[in-house]
Amino acid sequence: MTLFQFLLIIGVVVATGLALRLLPGERSLALKRILALLFVVAAVLAIIFPTMLTVIARFFGIGRGTDLLLYVFIVAALLFAVATIRAKARSDARVTELARAVALMEARIAEQPEREARDRRADASDSPTTGRAAAADDPESDHAR
């Protein structure tokens, strides 16, 4: 094994380990761990036995293992981009909901004094009526009698 192969293996293992550790969410974590493990095994094998890659490439009708690696890399990069865009869209939607909740709450708070003032006015106009009603019920003030 050359020194570069050794460094490559270290890199793959460390990167995968970190990615797994930083991966958010418990959902399907086990599945992700299995996939990561498979990826590490495949990467290590490909690093130690590069000729294996060429055999696989030949099988798929591609000349060299490095070409296969490039194609797989491009597809992986595209998938990564799509996943990132989708994640950003989801996070944007959450921000929108949060901002909307804040805006509506602010409006509610701003309109609170208005509404209270209106309620007070309503109470004030209510009390004379109740006063009259009480007077009507009062036998002392009943002029009809």
């Binding site: 921000v95 901002a99 909307r100 805006a103 509506l104």
Partner: peptide, 18 residues
């Protein structure tokens, strides 16, 4: 008019929904 203020710019669709 009554006023509701988005703390950040969200776009016209979001404003309508609010």
């Amino acid at each position: 008019a009554h006023l509701v203020t988005h703390p950040i710019n969200l776009g016209q669709g979001a404003a309508l929904q609010t």
